[in-house]
Design a protein around this nucleic acid. Sequence first.
DNA 1: GTAACTGCAAAATATTTGCATCCTT
DNA 2: AAGGATGCAAATATTTTGCAGTTAC
Lengths: 140, 140
Amino acid sequence: MVEEQIIQLLRKSQLSVTDSRRKILEIFIQAGSALAHHDVEEKTSERYDRVTVYRTLQTFMEKGIIHTIPTTDNSIKYALCKEDCAEGHHHDNHIHFVCEICGAITCMDEIHVPTINLPEGYHANQINMVVNGICKNCKA
Amino acid sequence: MVEEQIIQLLRKSQLSVTDSRRKILEIFIQAGSALAHHDVEEKTSERYDRVTVYRTLQTFMEKGIIHTIPTTDNSIKYALCKEDCAEGHHHDNHIHFVCEICGAITCMDEIHVPTINLPEGYHANQINMVVNGICKNCKA
DNA sequence: GTAACTGCAAAATATTTGCATCCTT
DNA sequence: AAGGATGCAAATATTTTGCAGTTAC
């Protein structure tokens, strides 16, 4: 059951299980794609304060529960991390797909990020690929 | 001479040649790396209004003179586009390197963005790669 | 001269901080 | 009971808009 998973995740991250945290995690799980702060705020506005959303997202970031996705359109999007996202360093070297029509952001776990050869003297720690295009659902 | 290039670029983009635009372009050329709005504002604060910086960056975006770089740290960075950036659609399929120490963002034009195989039904228009790591200058 | 650009003021948004109160453990 | 989490108020910071005056062509 989902409710169980959520509690497990919070426990594992050494966070106390509160209503707002449960609700916000639930929103991410149901959404399936990345969300902006604004999206989360909207879906919780009747229940929780704007500030709580800020603090919750920040806490989730610190604990490695969610991560930000780089986008070219100036918006900050958050998405659930994979299992192997440990606190401090993320292993989210996957590809994010941004649909130009519906705006949905999908993490493409299946696809591997290709290795690249950096110039002499450069060292890569993390690679993010952002692909803009048209998603399955919006394809005419 | 650089001053000449700047005027050429503005003319080519059908923009009138004003002090603030010249100055801001100069800043980008001298910087060599990507800049945040804040960086530009700082370097022009004695001369130009904050609002002018906003409007100038926006205009440059629309004309394809600069483009945004996706970064994971929630900051919006702008960088000069390559020659082939036409108005409306950018061909900046190159790799951006973000140094975790000095914060500098470099466009790695030499390296080609590898092609990837998207799942059935997805269509890619633009690919951005953001590599976080340690740059040549910061390497111990 | 005219259209476009800029500066200033102010509005609208977004984000952060302090503190008293409430909830989880 | 104690420490952490939340809500509220307010301070800051960021971005947008309107308009009058100025500048480029």
